[in-house]
């Protein structure tokens, strides 16, 4: 009796573990009816930055390429990239440093298009390092203080450290605290941190408090590629046609978003709960169609400089 129970337990455990091990090895594309559109799952973050793909979907740019979009929202690039690598998502959106770090740590990720860039103006970007204390007027004064970033090791943390370093402060003396964008204004208001690095629409809420902005992504590089659309190396090799069609559709969407800001402000309301008056006034990111590889090199340097990875990410491996 006891033996049998043990054997059952063993069999059960094996089943669970092997099922878990197989979980990630889904077929890269959903089987589709001949001649019908390809259904693709795309992992996106419900933020302003991904407005072009929502806009492109509603304008029919993906249908034109025979692609049926299934947009899945996830909390962040850290959740999307393993999904792209494992095949849950055929495509995904993630901030650029996360893509570089993921590739360095063995995830099979390739960039296919730019996600979004800065607004181009260092003094009026969609991102910003914000302080409440009026006596702090330069990033260097933040040395040794607590600053909120949405995640550890992402583009926001890199930007905070680099802004302080560029201004002559010690970037390693900063204490970076992970606080989600929606909670940042309250955290700074209650003096739990000395500064926050926010993006729109949180940035608008912070500016509305009368707080000052000390720098942004655009201060580091006005042409910075902030985020990327990615796919897996496996899919790029097995179904180059699908990847090419998706890339065409997303580039068309980016172009359209860049030249139709009013429609962008409108569509953001369909997948976020940003109020209309905030949407009307917030600073939008830039949506260039091409990846600025020079800025990816800059980010790769920052990743090593601030110890996120030991080896420098290979930018060309992402772009090939």
């Amino acid at each position: 009796m006891r033996m049998r129970r043990l054997a059952a337990l063993f069999a059960g455990a094996t089943l669970v573990i092997s099922a878990a091990a197989c979980g990630g090895e889904k077929t890269p594309t959903t089987p589709t009816t001949p001649g019908g559109p390809d259904t693709v799952n795309v992992g996106v973050i419900p933020i302003v930055d991904v407005a072009p793909i929502f806009l492109g979907e509603s304008k029919g740019f993906f249908t034109e390429e025979n692609i049926d979009l299934n947009l899945d929202t996830a909390a962040g690039g850290a959740a999307i990239l393993p999904g792209v690598d494992g095949g849950t998502f055929q495509f995904g959106f993630s901030n650029a440093p996360s893509v570089l770090i993921a590739q360095t740590n063995g995830l099979d990720i390739k960039a296919i298009a730019s996600g979004n860039g800065t607004a181009g103006d260092p003094d009026n970007d969609f991102s910003g390092l914000v302080v409440k204390d009026p006596s702090i007027t330069r990033p260097a004064q933040l040395a040794g203080k607590k600053v909120a970033a949405n995640t550890q090791g992402g583009i926001v943390e890199l930007a905070i450290r680099e802004l302080v370093a560029k201004d002559g402060g010690d970037p390693n003396s900063l204490e970076i605290v992970a606080i989600g964008f929606p909670d940042m204004v309250a955290a700074l208001d209650n003096d739990q941190v000395d500064a926050i690095f926010a993006v729109e629409p949180t940035l608008s809420a912070a500016k509305a408090k009368g707080w000052s902005v000390l720098g942004s992504f655009a201060t580091i590089d006005p042409k910075m590629t902030v985020a990327l659309y990615v796919t897996s190396g496996k899919l790029a090799q097995e179904n180059p046609d699908l990847v090419a069609r998706f890339t065409r559709a997303i580039k068309k969407s980016l172009e359209y978003a860049q030249s139709h800001p009013d429609e962008v402000r409108e569509i953001v309301g369909t997948y976020t709960n940003v109020p209309a008056e905030v949407r009307a006034n917030m600073t939008l990111p830039g949506w260039p169609t091409e990846i600025d590889s020079g800025s990816l090199d800059t980010l790769a340097d920052l990743i090593v400089k601030y110890g996120v990875t030991d080896t420098r990410p290979d930018v060309s491996a992402i772009l090939s």
Partner: peptide, 19 residues
């Protein structure tokens, strides 16, 4: 969340760094 040390903080860091 909002931590600067600890096991949970380490986990979060490993996850966001894909380690």
């Amino acid at each position: 969340k909002a931590s600067t040390d600890g096991l949970g903080y380490t986990f979060e860091q490993f996850q966001t760094r894909f380690q």
